[in-house]
Write a protein that binds this DNA or RNA. Structure first.
Lengths: 104, 104
DNA sequence: TTGTTATTTCGCAAAACAACGAAATATATT
DNA sequence: AATATATTTCGTTGTTTTGCGAAATAACAA
């Protein structure tokens, strides 16, 4: 009894993605970037979002850490875009999760 | 300038769902429940997951709070299942997010 | 009533998160 | 060299999360 299962790497990885998506500001950014393959600058975001520069920077850092976005230096700006490969991967993981629930 | 946007209710709601999914134990539970419309008992889970009873209970509480699962009292057990309506809603929100990124 | 089983709530400690302003960095311009 | 712009890092503060064991609850059985 009590044979502990070990949680699969996929579940751990997906939980990390979900956690990164689990804040309104971060999800807003992802939504924005996912629309028509847009990219944006930290300065654009700080103008439209109700958080300060340093706070926004932290959120961007977390999205980067989770692998969902990437920043290209484009002096004097940093251009942020989705990390497409990882985004596609995230998409298929969430797809799998929700499609397993299909009533057959 | 700096006309702050207000983050839509949908984004706030979806962030709440993502947050609830953002822990390996909770995601494991959701995955399990989503497979073939299964339900389970807290006792089953505590046997297979590497957390104590009270900790597991907290995780179940959070999933309930987010609306993703529901518990039916079935003495002496409590049977946990997905909250199908909200699960379908979550599914379509995540779908929308990821499908906006389609390269057209 | 006393005990048993399944689960939750409480109280606590440690860690992580969210937010801010000030200072630092990096790159261009004067 | 000094200044300006865009962004990040640092230090701090208050809040939330995660985890545990002990005690509480709820339903049933002896």
């Amino acid at each position: 009894m009590g044979n502990k299962v070990n949680i699969s790497d996929e579940v751990v990885e997906m939980a990390k993605l979900a956690k990164a998506m689990g804040h309104p500001v971060r999800l807003y950014i992802l939504q924005k970037l996912s629309q028509m393959n847009a990219c944006c600058y930290s300065g654009d975001l700080v103008d439209e979002l109700p958080v300060g520069r340093s706070t926004l920077s932290q959120h961007l850092k977390e999205l980067k850490y989770a692998g969902l976005i990437q920043g290209e230096i484009e002096p004097p700006y940093i251009k942020y875009c989705l990390n497409k490969e990882n985004w596609e991967n995230a998409k298929s993981m969430f797809h799998r999760l929700f499609d397993e629930s299909e009533t057959i």
